[in-house]
Design a protein around this nucleic acid. Structure first.
Lengths: 242, 242
DNA sequence: TAACACCTATAGCACCGTTATATGAACTGG
DNA sequence: CCAGTTCATATAACGGTGCTATAGGTGTTA
């Protein structure tokens, strides 16, 4: 496509927008600033991105792909709970590294504007949690667990971003992280059926079985049988809240 | 000041701004819309509020006073942990009742813009937690507990707001609430020193004593003695994170 | 050369937040 | 009752914003 030398105007626009968004401390960035920084005139922006919002959406999409790349680069340690901590900390780190981008990514709440991206972040976390579920370490469904963890993770990151970098106390993150994890998972590696704690062990077993079934290719059961079985399991595993 | 009949222009501006902000689904509201709705011309706005931001700050301030009034109207049940649940749920309810206002109140992260208000909300929650601490039900300091709870509370509320009202699942709130509470407090009403669980009972006792000392007027100790004593307690109670 | 997409630039529109200036209303001292 | 002062509102305009109708340049194909 493009040899070397100078990037194409489209790329320059993306970089200029990202840079100005990061620098200008939250205040709005004008299209004129962007086009000037990219050494381009206004119609070029609208030709490539249609909209100011379209340009910003492209910046956000790049941010998300960077975020997801960082998430995917975290290896599976074999200890599902430890993996959860890694991903939580990575989320916070990303937020503190790119505060303004993070704000546009996770602080933009308008329901119709953000679902696809945040949903994919949530889906990825759900995959990690599914591995924990397969290891019989979850006491709720991966779906619920992912939502709860992500909500708390975002809340903590926003709060950390909001305070001056000097007096940031990462203990807030670690503490809330352990709170959510301990509510969602069990630390014991013991046999789930003979769990010694007060957690309802049948629920742990059901969730683990559910996760195992969903991740494998069950040729043993007919599809209708499987469907009924999964429904039954899900009904059990969603009753852990009491 | 003002009899009855028609409110003063200043009040009309406030109400118009609040109404338009609530209606117009997150999109920016222009000063012209506001002044027209308030049946007032532009300079009146700038005379009373100096700025568009000043007007919005006033709206936000009203929102916060409404929020704090709702918080204060929650009676003390005598069961500190149950009180925590009440305040958490009240926070979520406020967010879902005034989603756009909530977004400006708690979603606006720019460090210099929001501290006073959010700080007062945090301070109020800290008071509630101090009562729990005085009842020897906290395993961390009220300050840390308030920050963690508020962060998770905001994160959950933002996530609930972001999804369509139809498919909102309040279980997310309840689950995360219990997670944070259980990490911050102990459910048992037993004597803290003879606590049966794995929680370090001396820490619970220290935090309770610390809270009791700070809330009373300690005429028994000299101020220098007290200062040293409090420092010592705080050093102990901050080591619960391990 | 001619024709065709593709990309970019000139110039301008309607709107925005904001303000210099002026007019009106309400109180105060004589 | 009037003059002076202060507060509150209005007229009209400025510069900046997102955006676009229109036109011009560029490279590839025939």
């Amino acid at each position: 496509m493009k040899k070397g030398g100078e990037p194409a105007p489209k790329v320059r626009l993306l970089r200029a927008a990202a840079a100005l968004l990061a620098e200008s401390g939250g205040e709005p960035v004008s299209t004129r600033q962007i086009t000037e920084a990219a050494r381009v005139t206004a119609p070029t922006l609208y030709h490539h991105f249609g909209d100011k919002e379209g340009l910003f959406d492209a910046v956000v999409a790049e941010g998300f792909s960077e975020y997801l790349a960082a998430e995917r680069s975290i290896p599976t340690s074999g200890q599902p709970i430890e993996d959860l901590r890694m991903h939580w900390d990575n989320h916070v780190r990303f937020g503190l590294d790119h505060p303004h981008l993070y704000l546009v990514m996770f602080g933009n709440i308008r329901p119709e504007r953000r679902p696809s991206m945040v949903a994919s972040a949530e889906a990825f976390l759900e995959e990690v949690l599914a591995r924990a579920a397969a290891a019989a370490r979850l006491v709720v469904s991966p779906h619920e667990a992912a939502r709860s963890m992500l909500a708390a993770n975002i809340g903590v990151t926003l709060m950390l971003i909001s305070e001056p970098a000097a007096k940031r106390n990462l203990e807030l993150s670690a503490m809330t992280r352990e709170a959510v994890i301990s509510a969602v998972a069990t630390d014991s590696e013991s046999d789930p059926v003979t769990d010694t704690e007060g957690t309802p062990s049948v629920v742990v077993a059901a969730i683990a079985l559910n996760a195992a079934l969903q991740s494998s290719h069950p040729d043993q059961l007919s599809s209708s049988e499987l469907k009924l079985f999964l429904e039954w399991l899900q009904r059990i595993s969603s009753r852990s809240g009491g």
